[in-house]
């Protein structure tokens, strides 16, 4: 298989001129996904940043077919598009659903679960920036412990969000999905490879890509990619795949870089004290102990 990197991917842009904030990680992930999927793709996006920044009538940032879906219906609209294309006999197309963390793990969850159950021929990409950013930074199911958002304020009594990040990747895998993966815009080549794999998969595939948000997280816009790399290196996010009923860790750091350094770069974690960070590291080590014991790498 052709190695996908900056030299081999197309120069053509399929998602261009959008109005996302400068340094937006989500639009970076979407830009590369569209590059791999190409001009015969049909995108379905729910209410969220990526829909809000690209469909501003009469400005349209997609150069392919794309539509906005009801918030809860990304995967079902994508399933419908795929079924429609099949009925019309249109071949060599890709149907993708692109939702944020709220549109996947909370509001869009039942539609996604149904689509995987039917094994609809779609690719579902979750751009995970760990809160509802478009509406003003509210906590979602994928917001990690200790995050300050407008609905999980940090103060004397609470350290921000008191719940753990929902384990969406393994929940999706538990459906017996054909292909699922996690990725990060800090490791773009790895993400490109996974989108290509999803494209080659017949049936439902799911990719959850970690995308920093300078506006919602409070860090300088030029550090988007380095933060997305730091989160993987510090073990607070992982790169993995699920295929043929087996989990595979794509990156198994011998030693984690400092979680504190990663957290303290962002104003959403500024309030955390040493005990909070110790707790976060404890949870991380527990998770990695299980992954290393049970998963291939």
């Amino acid at each position: 298989m052709l190695k996908l990197n900056a030299h081999t991917i197309t120069n053509k842009e399929y998602f261009y001129g959008h109005k996302a904030c400068g340094g937006c990680g989500e639009s970076l992930a979407l830009r590369h996904a569209m590059k791999i999927l190409g001009e015969n793709s049909f995108a379905a996006l729910p209410a969220g940043c990526m829909a809000a920044v690209s469909f501003i009538y009469p400005n349209m940032a997609f150069t392919t077919n794309a539509m906005i879906t009801p918030f809860a219906a990304t995967a079902s609209v994508a399933s419908g598009i795929a079924a429609g294309l099949k009925a019309l006999g249109i071949e060599n197309t890709q149907t993708i659903g692109i939702a944020g963390d709220g549109g996947t793990a909370d509001i869009g969850f039942q539609a996604l679960s149904g689509a995987i159950d039917r094994n609809a021929d779609i690719i579902f990409i979750t751009t995970d920036n760990e809160a509802y950013m478009n509406t003003g930074i509210q906590k979602s199911g994928l917001t990690p412990y200790g995050t300050k958002t407008t609905t999980s304020p940090a103060g004397e009594n609470l350290p921000g969000s008191i719940t753990q990040k929902k384990n969406m990747f393994e929940i999706v895998a538990a459906h017996g999905i054909t292909y699922a993966a996690t990725a990060s815009v800090g490791y773009i080549e790895d993400f490109l490879k996974k989108v290509q794999k999803a494209k080659d998969t017949k049936g439902t595939s799911y990719i959850q890509v970690f995308v920093p948000c300078p506006t919602g997280w409070g860090y300088p816009a030029n550090e988007t990619v380095s933060l997305a790399k730091a989160v993987v290196d510090s073990g607070l996010w992982y790169l993995a795949e699920y295929e043929n009923g087996e989990f595979m860790l794509n990156k198994n750091p011998k030693e984690f870089t400092s979680a504190k350094d990663y957290l303290k770069k962002q104003s959403r974690f500024k309030h955390l004290n040493d005990a909070d960070i110790e707790y976060i590291e404890e949870q991380r080590d527990k998770k990695w102990e299980i992954m290393r014991r049970k998963w291939n790498y």
Partner: peptide
Amino acid sequence: GSTCKSDHLTSINAGWR
């Protein structure tokens, strides 16, 4: 309906910089 052509840019983003 609320449709528009794809690849249809009507304004630039340079002013943000």
